[in-house]
């Protein structure tokens, strides 16, 4: 038998959580319900009539080869962003963990990108890589790379991967650094005495010991790349050239607001919603149950 603690019933607890519940309902549950409802409708081209069609919007989507392309592209994009930003922040945190002098300055500088708004971050990268005036495009030109992400889809993809990863490095860095600083110093010293150099220690001791953080960040970064990169893509490529940087989230926007296919767009967002729920479940079940030594 589970013992329950009984409190005298009072409206106060309900009052205290009411604002939070109201916000959740107005800004999350209600729009989600709307999207769900919308995804079952097809509007005619002029917006005069709508027809309840059950799953037809979903059927159309799943039969659309373009949607499959976008799906695969989004997975590629997410994996690239997660891999690149996690790898870079792991290395940076590894160095920051060893720094003795000026550690705070170094860390503060590394955290700054996190404070930059996505659209600004995007604008920054667009400017640096601008084929005619960008400094990096100029350097690339010097080493014989003809950079033009307005025309070259591969380069456009690379650019949004860079921009999105850069934005996420600070976040990953903080988690990695915290995880590394939680490793007892004597363990690293024991490895040093055992003859392992800094690189060997990093890959055989530190990296395995921060693996719970790696797993946690992997989920977070995938979620970020999937759902949270609209601003960057919008600022950098607007999905172009020729749709080569359109991801799932971006497609929701372009189909719904540009193409005015509200039903199709809503169906896509329902699919995204299901994915977020799935990832959240994974995170709760596997990540929050931290591996501790």
């Amino acid at each position: 038998m589970i013992k329950r603690v009984h409190f005298p019933s009072s409206p106060l607890p309900y009052l205290l959580v009411a604002p939070q519940i109201a916000i959740t309902i107005v800004f999350f549950i209600w729009p989600a319900g709307q999207a769900m409802y919308q995804s079952f409708l097809i509007e005619d081209a002029f917006g005069f009539g709508r027809e309840f069609v059950w799953f037809e919007n979903f059927e159309i989507l799943f039969e659309d080869p373009l949607y499959a392309d976008v799906f695969i592209r989004t997975i590629f994009f997410s994996v690239m962003v997660a891999a690149l930003s996690m790898f870079l922040s792991l290395i940076l945190a590894g160095f920051a963990d060893r720094v003795v002098k000026g550690a705070t300055i170094y860390r503060t500088l590394l955290i700054w990108p996190y404070a930059v708004a996505p659209v600004l971050a995007g604008a920054l990268w667009v400017f640096m890589f601008n084929p005619s005036v960008g400094i990096i495009a100029y350097w690339l030109d010097l080493i014989g790379v003809d950079w033009n992400h307005f025309l070259n889809g591969g380069q456009a993809m690379a650019l949004i991967v860079f921009a999105a990863s850069w934005k996420q490095i600070a976040y990953n860095f903080l988690f990695y650094l915290a995880a590394m600083q939680a490793i007892p110093k004597s363990m690293i010293e024991a490895a040093a005495i055992d003859g392992a150099g800094p690189a060997k220690r990093f890959w055989t001791i530190i990296f395995p010991l921060v693996s719970p953080t790696t797993f946690f960040l992997l989920v977070i970064n995938i979620v970020y790349a999937f759902f949270d990169t609209f601003g960057i893509i919008h600022a950098v490529t607007e999905g172009g050239p020729a749709g080569s940087t359109v991801t799932l989230v971006y497609k929701v926007y372009s189909d719904g607001f540009i193409g005015l296919d509200l039903g199709g767009s809503a169906a896509q967002s329902v699919i995204l919603m299901a994915m977020v729920i799935g990832l959240t479940v994974i995170q709760f079940r596997y990540v929050e149950r931290r591996v501790d030594y």
Binding site: S186, M187, E189, A191, A192, I193, G195, A196, S211, Y293
Partner: peptide, 30 residues
């Protein structure tokens, strides 16, 4: 000289075993 070059071994107060390795791997690491 670096610790590794001094050919010493040290036992720490908190043992400092490598938690992600088996006893065998701990002993064979060096």
């Amino acid at each position: 000289l670096e610790p590794a070059q001094r050919n010493i071994a040290m036992v720490f107060q908190n043992y400092a075993l490598y938690p992600h390795m088996s006893v065998f791997d701990n002993m064979s690491y060096g």
